[in-house]
């Protein structure tokens, strides 16, 4: 068995209570492995602890207890040198929610260069990396624009390019589409998908949009700081009632299948995470009935 890129065992994190108050647990006993090249969605309602999980992965927060190994580096030992920390953050990049609050420079290409500049990447490699990253996210023609003239989706793609230019192995998207309109969201999701499929990037997308989770290979549901579900989108969406109990919902089409089944329509199959899959199931169910007719 190959070693997992991310290995968490009984991972626990508590926020320090202020003024001697009790510590506030945010994550308790999370155990899971994420392999290289996986596309994982982490689902949960606001305040479920899903963002805390993301922040542990590149040590913005330090684990309180348990084991967390990322790319062979043990993050739970608590004694990383500055050089190791920088190496970790280069390998595990993070794109945040608010596109405005993560762009540093006043010109797009300068911003993309910020990461590799910090890593001391010399010219002309630096130039290659910046141009390459901008091309990957489809923002080459905006290289000399000012970020505040861009749309939300474009800004977020610039932020992604800024991470890509550091040549990471894994990118975490911490609710990166929450503030975007449908068009911007689609731009970013298409970019994420391409990164995973074409560049083999390990992708972790923290989100509360069910339709986004459906795009991943694997969905992890976190509720009240504990791991509730872990499976393919089809498997997770099959457990609609449990999801609803923790303030989540399934995509409309999956909901439809559930409700039809409850109404006594026999629909077989499990592929309920996409509209296409649901259509297939329904066609099959109806034509079966039709055939019996004939």
């Amino acid at each position: 068995m190959t070693e997992a890129f991310i290995h968490a065992e009984n991972l626990t994190f508590s926020y320090k209570g202020s003024n001697g108050a009790d510590d506030i647990p945010a994550l308790t006993n999370i155990s899971l492995d994420i392999q290289k090249g996986e596309y994982v969605a982490v689902l949960g309602h606001n305040g479920s602890g899903k963002s805390t999980f993301a922040k542990l992965l590149n040590l913005i927060l330090e684990p309180t207890s348990g084991t967390l190994i990322v790319g062979g580096t043990d993050l739970s030992s608590g004694d990383l040198s500055e050089a190791e920390l920088i190496a970790l953050r280069r390998r595990v990049g993070m794109v945040f929610q608010n596109p405005d609050n993560q762009l540093v420079a006043t010109i797009v290409e300068d911003d993309v260069a910020f990461g590799p500049e910090n890593l001391g990447v010399p010219m002309p490699e630096l130039r290659e990396r910046v141009d390459g990253a901008l091309a990957t996210v489809g923002m080459s023609e905006y290289a000399d624009r000012e970020p505040h003239h861009l749309s939300g989706g474009q800004k977020q793609r610039v932020a992604i390019a800024g991470i890509l230019a550091m040549r990471p192995e894994c990118i975490i998207f911490d609710e990166s589409t929450a503030m975007l309109d449908p068009l911007g969201r689609r731009e970013v999701l298409d970019t994420i998908r391409a990164l995973n499929r074409e560049n083999g990037m390990t992708v972790i997308n923290i989100t509360h949009y069910m339709n986004e989770a459906a795009l991943a290979d694997r969905v992890v549901v976190i509720n009240d700081g504990t791991l509730l579900m872990d499976g393919t989108p089809d498997e997770v969406f099959a457990r609609r009632d449990e999801l609803r109990a923790v303030g989540l919902e399934v995509p409309q089409c999956a909901e439809l299948i559930h409700r039809l089944r409850e109404a006594g329509v026999p629909i077989e199959g499990t592929a309920i995470s996409t509209a296409k899959g649901c259509a297939e199931l329904l066609v099959a169910a109806f034509s079966k009935r039709g055939n019996e007719n004939g």
């Binding site: 590149n58 913005i60 500055e82 920088i86 953050r89 280069r90 990049g93 993070m94 945040f96 608010n98 405005d100 609050n101 993560q102 540093v104 290409e109 300068d110 260069a113 910020f114 990461g115 590799p116 500049e117 910090n118 890593l119 001391g120 990447v121 010399p122 010219m123 630096l126 130039r127 910046v130 800024g162 991470i163 550091m166």
Partner: peptide, 26 residues
């Protein structure tokens, strides 16, 4: 809030002061 988030984002992009930084625009 913005300052706080920006600081996090800069740390995630390996910012550690001016030492050893290279420049895109020479």
């Amino acid at each position: 809030n913005r300052a706080y988030e920006l600081a996090s984002a800069m740390e995630c992009r390996c910012y550690h002061g001016g030492e050893g930084r290279t420049r895109l625009k020479i």
